[in-house]
Design a protein around this nucleic acid. Sequence first.
DNA 1: GTCTATACCTGGATAGAC
DNA 2: GTCTATCCAGGTATAGAC
Lengths: 194, 194
Amino acid sequence: MAASATREKIVTAADRLFYERGFEYTSFADVAAVVGISRGNFYYHFRTKDEILVAVIERRIKDRHAMLEGWVAQGKSPRECLASFISILTVNAAKIRAYGCPVGTLFSELSKLNHPQEAGARALFDLFRHWLRQRFEDMGHGAEADALAMQLLARSQGAASLANAYPDDAFLAREVDQMMAWLDTVADPATIPS
Amino acid sequence: MAASATREKIVTAADRLFYERGFEYTSFADVAAVVGISRGNFYYHFRTKDEILVAVIERRIKDRHAMLEGWVAQGKSPRECLASFISILTVNAAKIRAYGCPVGTLFSELSKLNHPQEAGARALFDLFRHWLRQRFEDMGHGAEADALAMQLLARSQGAASLANAYPDDAFLAREVDQMMAWLDTVADPATIPS
DNA sequence: GTCTATACCTGGATAGAC
DNA sequence: GTCTATCCAGGTATAGAC
């Protein structure tokens, strides 16, 4: 678990390449080339490719957790937090159009491969799901908070998928606007049937 | 282009395996095993793996086109047609929970591979997009018909993605209900701002 | 049209020198 | 900690017999 500099570089490079090219399609040679080390050196830091995947997923969970909790720590209201979540689609628009959602596409790939780390990828989804649910609960929603979280997660996944298929600036902006408008309608729980 | 029985069997098997395991992760040996032929025999029918992919995409386009136009030919109203589209999520729920959306996951994979047939996968999306747009136009929508088509496509993609991540019966049913309710709100163009 | 045999390459993984 | 050399499995593709 010692975080050597080379190890960190490997995880950083793998994180990017797994996102841009997918896990299966990224070879050790690819990662080694980016990091600037030999393929053999790899195995000093990671015994198998799966170990790198585990490290990448851990890294992503840590990053996203820090981002989400950072908003809370900044004192944002539940509603502002949800708006910030939706804004991810705007902030990362260029990457999403090029490569899709890092969470969704990783899960999709590992699911098809029947990879043991499918559970790890689901944990990434869980992180968002639970955080969103907490925000809806803080907003006054009770039993339906998890359903609202799933609904918002689904919409953002769908927007990311289609933005990837149709790299059209206007589409993603429109989806974000609609999600923000939807957020207004659920901001007052009285307007939403449970 | 002669549609020999063996060739058809290969396309059928590849279609299923590309969906269940993904394109890259499906080997010739896998397909050959399902069809019950030798690997060598393969190359009599298809010179490369990409040629099989082209045939699979053609097959999927043909199938989906027949399904969509079949609804129109049955005399369904634009609104009934859109409801039938939404119902795909219910009819194919089991497969979607297990493998995701055949259109979305194929596009996502080919996009990451930078595969030439990414365009073919997009054509599959286009088929749905244009058909949906036509239904919204027939319903009285004008300039916003395409945006509505994209919106519905995005929601169904998102629902499929999350249903794959969380194989929960209730979630997909809820998403379908919400899309049907949304359909009610757009059935009368007067209620929708352009 | 279908088979077996095989060439060839890529990519994951190991051994051992430095 | 990093390197080179090498092994081995699996996957695409070809040749040629039947």
